[in-house]
C-alpha cells in the first residue's frame, strides 16, 4: 500500500472510532471527546493529501490549522453549554436531557 493510502486509513480509523463514540457515549463530555477524535482524523487526511499528492501543500496545512482553530472554538462553546446544562438539570447525561423548554 502506498503511504497516501496508509495515512488515509489511519484517518478513517479515527473517523470510525469518533462516530462509534459519538453514538454510544451518554455524557455530553464523552461525546465532545469523540468529536475531537473525528476532527483529528480530518486534519490527518488533509495534511496527508497535501503532502503526498500534487495538491497545494500550503493550502492543506493551512486548512488543518484552521480546523484546529475551529476545534478550539467549538470546545470552548461546548464547555459553556455543558456547564449550563449541568447547572440547570443537574446532569450531563444526554439520555436524560430531553426537555425542550426548561
Amino acid at each position: 500500500m502506498s503511504p497516501l493510502v496508509l495515512f488515509h486509513l489511519a484517518a478513517l480509523l479515527l473517523l470510525g472510532f469518533g462516530l462509534y463514540g459519538l453514538t454510544s457515549r451518554r455524557s455530553l463530555v464523552g461525546m465532545l471527546i469523540s468529536v475531537e477524535l473525528m476532527l483529528n482524523g480530518a486534519g490527518l487526511a488533509l495534511v496527508a493529501s497535501a503532502r503526498l499528492t500534487p495538491a497545494s501543500d500550503e493550502l492543506g496545512q493551512l486548512g488543518t490549522l484552521l480546523v484546529m482553530g475551529l476545534a478550539a472554538a467549538e470546545a470552548t462553546l461546548v464547555l459553556a453549554m455543558v456547564l449550563v446544562a449541568a447547572k440547570r438539570w443537574g446532569t450531563s447525561d444526554s439520555d436524560r436531557l430531553s426537555a425542550l423548554k426548561g
Binding site: 455530553l28 465532545l32 486534519g43 484546529m68 478550539a72 456547564l83 449541568a86
Partner: peptide
C-alpha cells in the same frame, strides 16, 4: 501546532468540563 493547540488547550478545556459537571 497539534501538540500546542490540542494537547495544550483543548484537552485542558475538556478536563475542566469533566471536573465541573
Amino acid at each position: 501546532m497539534q501538540i500546542l493547540i490540542y494537547v495544550g488547550a483543548v484537552s485542558v478545556l475538556i478536563f475542566f468540563a469533566i471536573m465541573l459537571t
